[in-house]
Computed example of a mutant assay.
Amino acid sequence: MIFGRNRNVRHEQIVLPDELKDARDLEAERAVEPAGADRLGPHDAAARPDRTGYIDLGSLRVKAVQDMKLRLDVEDATQRIVAATVTLGRSALQVQAFSAPRAGGVWDGLRHELADSLATTPGAQVQQVDGPFGPEVHTRVPAAMPDGSPGWNVARFVGVDGPRWFVRGVFHGEAAFQPEAATALEQVFSDLVVVRGDAPLPPRELLPLHPPAGAQPLQRRRRAPEAPAAAETGGSSLPERGPEITEVR
C-alpha cells in the first residue's frame, strides 16, 4: 500500500506486515503475481494470461499432461457440467471451481463441514492434516473389494482460496494414499487457472464449465479401473464414474 506524507512531496512505498493486511491487500498481491512466479496454484487468470498448453473448460483451464485423460461429469437433474476429472495411471483428480466472497475465503469453513459430514458414515475414518496446499481432509470409508474382501474407499480433499473464487480438488486411487503417486496430479492441480469473470455470484456458487474444443462425446458410462490394496487389511478403488460427456487424450 502507498501512503503520502504530503500532497506536494514524494510518496513512499511501504510493505505491510502480514498481520496488518486485509482481504483487499491479499487480493491485490495475487493479482500482480508475475506470470513466471514459482508458487503453488491454482492461479487466477489475471496472473496466468498465457493459454499455451492449456485446455479451456470455461471457468477452469487445465494444463495438458502427457498420457492424461480428461473427463467432464454431468449432473443428471440439470445436465450441466459440474466437475472435471483428470486421470493419470491408477490415480484421478476431480476439480471444481466456486465463487467466493471478496473478504475471506470459504475453505476453512467448508473443510470442517466436509469432515463433520463424512464422519457420519459408519466406520469412516476422517483426518484433517497439513499438505502442500494447506489443510486437507483425508477419508477412508469401508467398502467391498471386487473379490468381496473388505477394503476401503480412500479420498483426499484439498482446497485453495483465490480472489473471489475457490477450487476444491479430490484425489482418488493411488494418489489418495501414496504420496509418491500423487506428485503428477498435484502438479496438475497447482497449474490450474481459474477464470472467475466479473458477474456477481453468491458464495459457493459453482462456476460454469464447458467442453473443450475438439472434445469427443462418449456414448456410455465406464467403470474406473481398480486401485491396489491400501493396506494389508483394506484397499482403495476409484469411484464408479457418473454421467460423462467428453474425454480428451
Rank of each mutant, 00 (worst) to 15 (best):
P34M: 05
A23Y: 07
R156A: 06
S236E: 10
T87W: 02
V195P: 00
A175I: 07
R5M: 12
R61M: 14
R80G: 06
R61W: 15
R111N: 01
L110H: 10
T121H: 11
P17G: 12
D76H: 13
L185K: 12
G123R: 07
R249K: 15
R39S: 15
P122Y: 08
S99H: 01
M68L: 14
P150M: 10
L206C: 00
A77Y: 03
L72I: 06
V137Y: 04
V137H: 00
T52E: 08
P150W: 07
G162W: 01
I2P: 11
W165D: 01
R39D: 09
R204F: 12
H43Q: 02
L60N: 04
K63M: 14
A28F: 08
P132C: 01
I245A: 06
D108E: 10
H138M: 04
S59M: 02
A77V: 11
R5V: 13
R241A: 12
E136W: 01
R223K: 12
A77N: 11
G148L: 08
G162Q: 02
A227R: 10
L110R: 12
P42G: 05
Q187H: 04
V195W: 01
T246Q: 08
A230P: 03
L20K: 09
V141Y: 01
L110S: 13
A181K: 15
L88H: 11
A175V: 06
D161G: 04
E186I: 04
E136Y: 06
E180F: 05
A47H: 09
F157S: 03
V170A: 07
D73G: 12
P132I: 04
Q216Y: 02
P142F: 06
P200M: 03
S117F: 05
Q178E: 08
G169P: 02
G173K: 02
Q94N: 07
P202T: 07
Q178A: 13
V141S: 08
P239A: 07
V195S: 10
V170D: 00
A230E: 14
N153L: 08
